Structure formats: structure tokens, C-alpha cells
Simulated assay, not measured.
Amino acid sequence: MTTDLPARMLRLLSLLQTRREWSGNELAERLGVTTRTVRRDIDRLRELEYPVEGTTGHAGGYRLAAGAAMPPLILDDEEATATAVALRTAAGQLTGMEETTLRALAKLEQVLPARLRSQVAALQQSTATIEWERRGPRTDPATLAALARACRDHESVTFAYTTRTGAVADRRVDPHYLVASGGLWYLLAHDRDRDHWRIYRLDRITELTPTRHRFTPRPVPGGDPASYVAGKIASAPVCYRAIATVREPAEAVRRRTFALATRIQEAGPGACTVDCSGDHLPGIAQILAGLGADYALDADEAVRDHLRTVARRALDAAG
């Protein structure tokens, strides 16, 4: 039971920040007080200008709403450490967030207790990040944050989506999961108009709008969002076809190739096929170079022409 008022108020604020909505009975049970005490503590938070809303429905409840300014976050030791490390790692990973991420990290580290500051420093000193030149599309952080909220709150959204052919169409979906792969972010959602699961690249989403309509989450086919998205990416239409039959078992090839695991299939004793098809010729050549074994290639002529050019350059360089 939390009898000390300041400690109880901090605990109450922390609970309100961890979930979208709490019933009065749940809060009372967590704090070890009566629902009447919870109501008084909620009123105290409101007097301190924390935007706590009361909700209607069976038994009612409370939630921390958006206000004029963000209230102080209450983090435990593990949460604070994880946040600091994540901010340090994430700096520069999303368009427009490099400087903002570093400012947030500076604020957090300034107030960390000494025992946590040393933990974070040790983690940062023992890790490093290699920054590669980014040539592909990058995700808008506002879109990523809005979709993360919609997935968490089970709220339908609408947006304009640009397909791989350049066509733009309106979509109305129930967002379930965000999946990162190969430098891109994907949204796994159930399309309300087509009544079917769909995968959308976040860099192709514009005009994102929450609908304030709640939905009941559906089970993802196969039970694993990442595996489902990987399988769909592997089977998506591409510009260039390239299938390699490798003279090694599939498991050995999986350990050293850049190809998606779902694109590597057994093809008899000691052999497998690797689907290297894609929209980017240098990327196809990179996957083939990483196979690490002899292979036969069934590919479009554009792929073969590119490989011949790459091979001639390599031979010339080798003297």
C-alpha cells in the first residue's frame, strides 16, 4: 500500500503513462487505496495541470490525454537505461530526427542518477555504429509515430498510398504491426474495404489521418508478423528475375547470404535454389556474389548483361 502522498502521486502518474486507459478499480488495486482516494489523487493531478480525462462506459476510467505541454515522464531504472541507449543508437536513423534525438538524449542524461549514468556510459563506450550512405527512401518520423500510436490503440486510419507503378489510391485500414526490414519500414494492416491483409511501405504513405474508430485486432496469418511480412516481400512482383541453383545445402547458404531466408529452398541432396530477383541490378549481383559456392543461373538478359559488365571490370582490375 502506497501511503505517502507524493510517492503515491508519482506512482499514479507512472501508471497513467504506461497504458492508454485505466479503470478506477484497477488503479485502486495497484496503489493499495480506495477508489475514492484515486478520485482525489486524480483531482490533485488536474490541479497541477496534468490533462487526466475521465472516460465513460462500464465502471468508467481515466487516461492521460494530450495537453498543452508534455508532462514529465516517470521511468524506472531499466526504462531510463533502455531509453538512453535507444536514443543514442537511433540518432541519424530517421529523416529529420538526428538533432532532435540528440537533444532528447542530452536532457535525459542530465537527470540520470549517477548509478544509471555510469551504466549508460559503459554501454555506449563499448558499442559503435557504422554509418552507411543512404541511397534509398527514408521514413518520415511523424508517419512512423502516428502509425505506432494507431497500432497500440487499435485505431483505424486512412492515407494515400503510392504503389510501385506510381499510381496513388486512398486506403482505409486497421493497423496491426510495424516491421523494419532492409532499411525500410512496413505496415501490416487489414484493409477494411478489401477485407484482406495488406503490407504498405511507410515511405509511400502520405496524408495519414486517424479516424477515431476503434477495431478489434485480428490474429495475423501464421501467428508471426515478421515472418508474414518477409514472405510477402519475397513473393512481391519485381523488375528483374534471377534464380540461382546452388550446389550446397540450403542451411549453409542461409548462414552467409544477403537473401531473405524465405527465398532459399531445398532442391535435392546437397543443393538449393536462391531467388535473387529484385528491382535493383547491383543488389542482385551482391546477393549472387555472397552465395559462396558454384551455381547455375536462370535470369533475365538484363541481369546477365549487368553481371558480364561487373565481371569484366573485376577481371580488368585483377590485371
Rank of each mutant, 00 (worst) to 15 (best):
E78T: 09
D4Q: 12
G92R: 09
D298E: 15
S156V: 01
L184Y: 05
L27G: 04
R263E: 13
R40C: 01
A90V: 00
H306T: 12
V303Y: 05
A189I: 10
I287W: 01
T56V: 09
R198V: 08
P219W: 15
S235N: 13
A167S: 13
A28V: 11
P71K: 04
C239L: 15
L188Q: 07
I205F: 11
V168A: 06
R19M: 02
T158K: 03
I243F: 00
K232L: 15
L188F: 07
M97F: 01
R149E: 11
A128N: 02
A146Y: 08
P51I: 11
G96V: 11
D41P: 06
S181V: 08
V238F: 00
L187N: 06
H306N: 09
V52L: 03
R30V: 06
V303P: 09
R218K: 14
E133M: 04
A160N: 09
G222P: 13
L102Y: 00
A91M: 02
G54N: 14
N25A: 07
H190F: 15
A80D: 00
R171W: 11
T101N: 00
D153G: 01
G136Q: 10
I243C: 00
R44W: 05
R263V: 15
A121W: 14
I74T: 08
A318W: 14
R256T: 15
P225R: 13
E21Q: 14
G292H: 03
A121E: 14
G183K: 03
R39G: 00
T129G: 01
A114N: 07
A148L: 04
H190E: 12
L208A: 06
A80L: 07
R308Q: 12
A230E: 14
Q286H: 06
R44Y: 05
G231Y: 12
L315C: 08
D76P: 04
Y240I: 01
R212S: 13
G60Q: 15
A86I: 01
T100I: 03
H58R: 15
F215E: 14
S181E: 13
V229R: 02
A230T: 14
A285T: 14
C239S: 15
Y228Q: 10
G182V: 05
D191A: 05
I205C: 03
V120F: 03
G67I: 08
D203L: 02
V168C: 01
G57H: 15
D43H: 10
T127L: 04
Q125A: 10
G283W: 06
A242M: 08
A189Y: 12
P71T: 05
Y186M: 03
L87I: 08
L188I: 11
Y200G: 00
E26P: 04
E131L: 11
R39V: 02
G268N: 06
L123P: 00
S181H: 13
L291C: 04
Y161P: 06
L112H: 11
R19I: 09
E29G: 08
T101L: 01
R212Q: 10
P72F: 02
L73I: 07
P51H: 14
R304V: 10
V310M: 02
P221Q: 13
A66C: 10
D300P: 08
L184V: 07
A317C: 01
L281S: 08
H190I: 09
L260I: 05
R164M: 09
Q93A: 07
T18C: 06
L116I: 14
S227D: 13
A86Y: 10
V274L: 04
D224P: 10
H58A: 09
N25Q: 13
P6Q: 03
S14I: 00
